[in-house]
Design a protein around this nucleic acid. Structure first.
Length: 133
RNA sequence: GAUGCAGACCGUUCUAUCGCUGUGCAUUUUUAAUGCAAAGAGGAAAGUCCGGGCAACAAAGAGCACCAUACUUCUUAACCGGAAGAUAUUCGAAAGAAUAUAGUAAUGUAAUAGAAAAUAACCGUCCCGUUCAAACGGGAUAAGGGUGGAAAGGUGGGGUAAGAGCCUACCAGUAUUGCAAGUGAUUGUAAUAGCUGUACAUCUUAUGGGUUGAAAGACCAUGUAUACCAACAUUUAAGAAUUGCUCGUUCGUUGUUGGGGGGUAGGUCGCUUGAGUCUUUUGGCAACAAAAGACCUAGAUAAAUGAUAGAACUUCUUUUUAUAAGUUGACAGAACCCGGCUUACAGGUCUGCUUCCUUU
RNA sequence: GACCCCGUAGUUUAAUGGAUAAAAUUCCGGAUUCCGGUUCCGGGGCUGUGGGUUCGAUUCCCGCCGGGGUCG
């Protein structure tokens, strides 16, 4: 069974190193796609996966920890179910990227909306990667 | 049955599929992956307002200062917490609720208004003198007087030039003493003292307080600025540190030798068995305590505890009058751990009591 | 996570527990000017919020709300 077709999401696939996160924000490129801002960078790491991702929700916009958790969980779930779009492209190109999603909307959007936007973002990410190479 | 008051408790559930976190077991290509198993947010996890545990700092010492607390008895590891009471005031028809309460030896303040805000004479009343009188001057007097949050205990009688606790009867309060009740705050009662405004602050007394907080701290790997320590030689003195001050104590400038390890980015421990949870019994009005038995029940780190579908429960709406359709799911998310307090909260359950109505 | 500070006109700051809360500046209206500027006059406030102490609170005390900062 192909690893990339399973809907898993382990620690290896998430951004969890502070240094790499700082690098994404400091040196990476970014674009907006409502309700997210996406910052990404080509990176070199040895985890067996072609992408690492993280989600950020601002404390200034959402004061309550419950709201922030809800949005992060919805976003992560949407990524988990659709990440094969990105993985297939990256496998073909043999590239590795790290990226952060920053939630910039001021409303709590339902899961269906977030999922459709995440799919758009993943398609655009793979295309952008083509252009830059 | 309705109504309110007080207290205690619960605060969505189940199934399927796909996932996340650490743990145990098994397998493999043994650094890692896969499979299986049993677990995985709260009553407030929140605010960080108190109190502790735990850790580091031994020049963390003594005195003063400073801060906190302040009716009584109990409770506790501890507390600005809790329980049961005391006194006063306010709210309520009641059940009940809220707030305040160490001491008075001393000192200060009370704007405006008002004669006066505390060893009170502006008007008034009374007496005396000057004087025809009006008026003026000297005294006595707290019974009356626009105020004010607060006005010198209240009423009757005596007394007096006029008055006054000046004297007396009754009443209200205060203080002291005796007796009775209570562990005590205090209460009741009797006697004595003419002792009698209120609030706040300073002050006094008693008790407690070393400082910093898990980003504490320990270890591993990497690694090498010259932080720090010791010895010896040199220098003698200003100064620096320790808690705000004083005392006390310690350090001191440069060089050599030896020890030692800064910054950066990581990992492991700290980390979850604890003043633990549940049940029963006993003691106590209660907070709570004791005994016996059973149990192990989150441990993440850009940070897990989720998503989708269906069913039940619940909220609201419509149709209808017991069904159908749609809709809603309170406040809110562990970050070292406990005990409280405070604040937020859809809806529901139980217990005790108040008042009203009905039936017997 | 632990700790600290602040909140007064649109803005920046004042005000010892005591009269209708002060000043500068901005804004609005008016005067002056042919018009604008300058100048002059006038207007504009729930002292963040809810309680408490007090005769009286911007000030003192307590609880909330909002904003900001320090510590790797």
């Amino acid at each position: 069974m192909n690893k990339s077709l399973r809907h898993t999401l382990t620690k290896k696939e998430r951004l969890h190193r502070k240094k790499l996160i700082d690098k994404v924000f400091a040196q990476g490129e970014s674009f907006h796609l409502y309700p997210f801002k996406v910052a990404w960078i080509k990176a070199d790491f040895n985890t067996g996966y072609n992408a690492q991702f993280g989600i950020s929700v601002s404390k200034k916009i959402f004061k309550k920890a419950v709201d922030r958790n809800l949005l992060k969980r919805r976003s992560r779930e949407a990524y988990r179910l659709n990440k094969h779009i990105l993985y297939n492209e990256l496998n073909l190109q043999n590239k590795k990227i790290a990226f952060m999603l920053i939630y910039i909307s001021k409303e709590i959007l339902p899961f269906e909306v977030i999922e459709s936007k995440i799919i758009l973002i993943l398609r655009r990410l793979s295309k952008l990667d083509e252009k830059s190479t």
